[in-house]
């Protein structure tokens, strides 16, 4: 336990100015991630998952809080130092079509990170790209194709190869499954697992696909309106979710019923996630919470530990577990 974590996010907040108003995308988020482990980030659209992913990579520098990556505080790094640090932390985007360079073929797209960091001779880079292509399950001949000529799954493989080219320690996967169909999603997850074992990679796996997150992650953080409302090891969270939001979120996972009679009524949360421009007073979830009490409307619940490594920010949790 005394081993220093690979990634340590402390009190990170990020907001945007939108039409003169402040949109609080990420509010005071802290967590740690050890090398070789996976943190699953789940939550509805607009909960700040992607912003958090980009902020912790310093692609969207947060206003307050800091990120300690492999012992270095990112806020203290110069532009130059940060650029060279990026070798160790990569991101796989949701939509490879817009994140890959459409004017360059696959070969060049994967070679680009190596070019940027002036690694190897042309010959070595060529061999490296060939190796990466086979590692992500593509043919070397695919290197000649342009991104738009590939299928969605192949494009995402190229995106992964590009992220792996610099041999990172951490990869943020931002909704990388959402554009793919089910069988390809499974292939991607198998690939991610295999790569994690081979390279001892740490993932921050952002997704609204709860089954996939449960399958890949060692820990899960549930986000609601920019805050982590519950954080726990995967088994713990799935077995005994404490926060009412987590509970409803897990109820929304559909299982194929065995018979027509076995179909249970679908439970949904009332209403929509409130606008991050006007975050509700007190607990942000109180507008939709089935167990709402007076204290929830006025006081923001602190994050408390309800079991070993299991943190919840909910007023009700106190009575049950503390």
């Amino acid at each position: 336990m005394s081993v220093e974590p690979l990634l340590e996010v402390t009190h990170l907040s990020k907001s945007f100015r939108v039409h003169g108003q402040t949109l609080q995308a990420v509010r005071d988020v802290s967590f740690t991630l050890a090398a070789g482990e996976t943190l699953g980030l789940v939550g509805e659209s607009g909960s700040g998952k992607s912003t958090l992913g980009r902020s912790l990579l310093w692609l969207l520098p947060p206003e307050t809080g800091d990120v300690r990556f492999a012992g270095e505080r990112l806020r203290t790094l110069s532009k130059q130092a940060l650029r060279s640090r990026r070798k160790d932390m990569q991101i796989v985007f949701q939509d490879p079509v817009s994140a890959l360079n459409p004017r360059a073929n696959v070969f060049r797209n994967i070679e680009e990170p190596l070019l940027v960091h002036r690694m190897g001779t042309a010959r070595e880079r060529r061999q490296e790209v060939a190796r990466l292509l086979s590692q992500v399950g593509l043919q070397e001949a695919h290197g000649l194709a342009y991104p738009f000529e590939l299928s969605g799954g192949q494009q995402q493989r190229v995106m992964i190869a590009r992220a792996l080219a610099l041999q990172p320690k951490l990869v943020v996967c931002d909704e990388m499954l959402s554009a793919l169909d089910m069988s390809v999603q499974t292939q991607m997850m198998a690939l991610l697992q295999q790569l994690q074992q081979e390279h001892h990679l740490a993932y921050v796996f952002i997704s609204h696909n709860l089954s996939a997150v449960g399958y890949l992650s060692s820990h899960i953080a549930v986000m609601y309106l920019g805050k982590i409302v519950e954080y726990a090891p995967t088994e713990q969270l799935v077995a005994s979710p404490v926060h009412p939001y987590t509970a409803t979120l897990f109820q929304s996972i559909l299982h194929i019923p065995e018979s027509k009679a076995a179909r249970s009524a679908l439970t949904t949360l009332p209403g929509e996630i409130p606008s991050p421009v006007k975050v509700p007073m007190g607990c942000a979830f109180h507008t939709r919470c089935p167990h709402v009490q007076d204290v929830c409307r006025t006081q923001e619940p602190p994050s408390i530990q309800v079991a070993q490594g299991h943190f919840v920010a909910c007023h009700l949790a106190k009575g049950d577990f503390a």
Binding site: S84, R85, S98, A99, N101, V116, H117, A165, L166
Partner: peptide
Amino acid sequence: SELVESGRAIGASRAFVIRHYVFPH
């Protein structure tokens, strides 16, 4: 765009992004 962002993500300098992503576009 995500294209420019993915350029920054691999640690490309401003000049590299302009030359290889923005100008060709």
